[in-house]
Design a protein around this nucleic acid. Structure first.
Lengths: 257, 257
DNA sequence: CTCAATTTGTTCGTATGTATG
DNA sequence: ACATACATACGAACAAATTGA
């Protein structure tokens, strides 16, 4: 390393990976457009203040990811159709959530030592006496993008075990008569992949993830459904309508389509 | 490295960093509680299948982050009050958003080469003829946690330049008469820090971030306000009420707390 | 066609970081 | 703590392909 304490030092990850993620971002944000020639190695060296070889390592990574294509003597180009994920839109309302789940074909995963009960914070609801644990994987185009860990109160599970084994728990829950759903909420934070998740999603240990926790509470304040859903960070997107679009008469409860 | 192709190989990040992020996660998720003794080095070696020194490197990192405390002969312990962020709750409705911003004291940042106009997708609205660009930093307890990049249509800015220079654009916009706000939406994806953002937020290049884009469209379909807000990933949390809680009389506008 | 400029690709030597046993 | 192996990063020099004058 040089004598210079550079900005990159804040991060412990290798330099060429840092450079690669900045370049990847430029492609995803369409600052570098498909088929376009990106700056030369010399220019990139200067911009990032790194050696030739380091830029090359970064370019190699993006080549293997199918984002860049280098040609000796000509330059390095963004490929014609860089694969950019962010397909799955996280639901922001109950109806949309249930609808989107109904189309899913989650693949169940056997789990060796299932946790007995969810790790509930006090404000999330009271614990039920016993829970059933299920884990499944969500796929899109044969690629796993989400791990679903569901704790379902046994009293609920008992009402229709067959259905719960075959279909997503949430949609069964919605159709269930005696569920008495009172409240449902979801929190999302950015986390990092633990070994199990990394393995299931095919991402690196510690790679960024979106951790969604969805809790359904019944009339007695008991959490009957607690799901921890972990998405790979590049698979999801969240869309929030802050104001209703047409803003006609601001009807609130307009029948559940 | 051994001859073994191990799971960790999926990630190019150094092993000890991967191990550190798993351990950090356990503390944040409260699987390892404050003051609790964590597994011994030997146990960790076995679990992660890495050498002693590698575990120690990971522990060192978490010590410097103020999460762990090792005592020779006794063991390694989670500190009493591990600093866990996730304070800022991302707004999911217009009113909440405006309210939360009103309390903010963003610190304006000079920007050398401001972009002329926002990079709008077709479905986000039509471009206005000219925009004003502003950048500011959001702080909590003297720590920066968010970078706000705002494009404000000049026609709007002109109506109250003084206010727009002093207050958050969104709250001024809300109070403005001639704004004709028709629709507002926000999208959130997980991204990674570019050099500028990394510098401003004091995080590593390529460290995970939450990228929020908030667009306000007027009656003519013109985007009068386009904000790109980049948060450090550990500072924010998103809370979505899927079903209204008490469902009593569903009072909506109940005075500004 | 040749030449020179441009640009990617490769190699060497050295220093430091990472990971193992 | 030590010896070993491999990865990361630097600077510099050189090779090979492309382009346009």
């Amino acid at each position: 390393m040089l004598e210079l304490t550079r900005a990159y030092n804040r991060s412990l990850v290798p330099l060429y990976l840092q450079v690669a993620s900045v370049m990847r971002q430029r492609i995803e944000r369409r600052e570098w457009l498909p088929r376009q020639k990106i700056p030369t190695l010399v220019e990139l060296e200067e911009e990032f203040q790194v050696a030739r070889v380091t830029v090359r390592q970064a370019v190699n990574i993006l080549q293997e990811e199918g984002l860049l294509d280098s040609q000796q003597g000509r330059g390095t180009f963004v490929v014609e159709k860089p694969i950019i994920r962010h397909w799955v839109k996280l639901a922001t309302s109950w109806n949309v959530l249930v609808e989107s789940i109904r189309d899913n074909i989650p693949r169940p995963i056997k789990v060796a030592n299932p946790p007995l009960r969810p790790n509930l914070r006090a404000d999330e609801g009271k614990l039920s006496s016993k829970y059933i644990f299920q884990r499944s994987l969500q796929f899109k185009e044969d690629e796993p993008y989400g791990v679903v860990n569901v704790h379902l109160a046994q009293e609920i599970y008992r009402q229709s075990p067959a259905a719960f084994r075959q279909h997503p728990a949430l949609s069964v829950l919605t159709d269930l008569k005696g569920a008495d759903i009172q409240h449902a909420h979801q929190t999302v934070v950015i986390g990092s992949a633990d070994p199990t998740t990394a393995e299931l999603l095919g991402i690196g240990l510690g790679a960024p993830t979106a951790e969604c926790r969805c809790v359904v509470v019944n009339g007695k304040g008991v959490a009957i459904y607690v799901a921890d859903i972990i998405y790979r960070s590049d698979a999801i997107q969240l869309h929030i309508d802050l104001l209703p679009k047409p803003a006609a008469h601001s009807k609130r409860s307009k029948g559940r389509r």
